[in-house]
Nucleic acid binder design. Structure first.
Length: 261
DNA sequence: CAATGTGTTGAT
DNA sequence: TCAACACATTGG
């Protein structure tokens, strides 16, 4: 470690680096924003607020790469994630959504003002998700809901439908993958939230639909056992445990048949 | 003089 | 493409 305690205050650029992309510390304890395009650096100016600099970069990124389409979409994502999307057959959906919301992905996710929807432990319980998610007619076909992962910005898509057999609303397709990849076990909680401000996007037809961006965040319960007696192995029951989160008792066959993992 | 943004380099 | 660092330039 370097003793830049007082140096950080006095010395120019000692303020280490920014956690935001395109944001660089300036000598006077201010922040500069820059973006690279075609081998050249485009200076976006200096501001006092680090977050403001991040927003400046965001705006620029949208301008420079917003209309880039799939190229930008791909460029903005780790190769592993793209491969992942292809394997899950969600590439088209996610690309469409990315293009609609404008931008190839924003790292400043944490800056989006959100309001909490609900939070629930991953355990059998009766959750009334229908009070929070978009209205779903019992007769209507299932819808796809997209949630942006607060940790990383990855988009998780779940099929949201009503099961008349159990008279409950459930998240099915995609949920087991989410649980597995996140390493969730019973006792952990998953928090749902949505952007405070609605986002309106116009479709090709000229229609304008207003949506709220929805977010998902994992909160792992503090673990107390050292790994012995692994009764919580999440793959043991094929993810059925987690689906019960919504009070539904999903059949293994239902997931297995359409499993995207 | 303080603030700014370009030159430049090394890394990913 | 990116950020770290140095420094020439700007302008009040």
């Amino acid at each position: 470690m370097d003793g830049d305690d007082d140096a950080a205050a006095a010395s120019p650029r000692a303020q280490s680096s920014s956690r935001y992309k395109g944001v660089v510390p300036q000598p006077n304890a201010r922040w500069g924003a820059q973006i690279y395009e075609r081998h050249a650096r485009v200076w976006l100016g200096t501001v006092a607020d680090e977050a403001a600099a991040a927003r400046a970069y965001d705006a620029a990124a949208l301008r420079f790469r917003g209309r880039g389409g799939a190229m930008a979409f791909l460029a903005a994502r780790p190769k592993a994630e793209v491969v992942d999307m292809l394997r899950k057959h969600t590439y088209d959906d996610e690309l469409r959504q990315a293009l609609r919301s404008g931008g190839g992905g924003d790292h400043a996710l944490a800056l989006v003002p959100r309001v909490a929807l609900f939070e629930k432990a991953v355990t059998p319980s009766d959750l009334h998700a229908e009070k929070h998610f978009p209205p779903l007619d019992e007769a209507a076909p299932p819808v796809l809901l997209a949630f942006e992962d607060v940790a990383g910005g990855k988009v998780w898509r779940f099929r949201y439908s009503y099961w008349s057999s159990s008279q409950s609303y459930v998240l099915t397709r995609g949920w087991s993958c989410f649980v597995r990849e996140k390493g969730l076990v019973a006792g952990d909680t998953v928090a749902f939230s949505q952007a405070q401000a609605a986002v309106s996007s116009s479709t090709d037809d000229g229609e304008v639909d207003v949506k709220r961006r929805m977010f998902i965040e994992c909160r792992k319960r503090k673990r107390n056992d050292g790994g012995a007696g692994h009764g919580d192995d999440c793959c043991a029951d094929g993810g059925a445990r987690v689906v019960r989160l919504f009070g539904a008792n999903i059949a293994a066959a239902a997931i297995g048949a359409s499993c995207m993992c």
